[in-house]
């Protein structure tokens, strides 16, 4: 009985987090929700008797993908401010072409 409750809660949590991550207006929040989605996925793999997949997901789904997304978001945000000298020269010669 208890494991059904846990599985149901985990499944609902996964769907809810995915929905929130895909609809939150704030992109930063969306990515952080996606992080937690990856962590719950790792739990789901453990529940499904797939510890190998859980290890890979914990390192990649919950860590690396989120880091990549946040880094891309940071690059989008910093390029919003053309006054910034560091990103300015990197982007400008691309925009001119």
């Amino acid at each position: 009985m208890l494991h059904w409750a846990f599985d149901g809660l985990l499944g609902t949590g996964l769907l809810w987090l995915a929905w929130r991550a895909l609809t939150t207006p704030d992109l930063f929040k969306a990515i952080v929700l996606f992080f937690s989605f990856g962590l719950l996925m790792a739990l789901a793999w453990v529940r499904l008797n797939a510890p190998d997949v859980a290890l890979a997901e914990a390192a990649i789904g919950a860590g690396l993908t989120g880091a990549l997304l946040l880094a891309a978001l940071a690059r989008l945000d910093t390029s919003n401010q053309p006054a910034n000298p560091v990103t300015g020269d990197g982007e400008s010669d691309l925009v001119d072409h």
Binding site: G61, L64, L69, S79, L94
Partner: peptide, 21 residues
């Protein structure tokens, strides 16, 4: 999972390029 993360990285760079252009 590993292929998905590398595809995501490539897609993100493409997105940044679209944004830059």
């Amino acid at each position: 999972i590993v292929v998905a993360v590398s595809a995501t990285a490539l897609a993100l760079i493409l997105m940044l390029k679209v944004y830059a252009v």
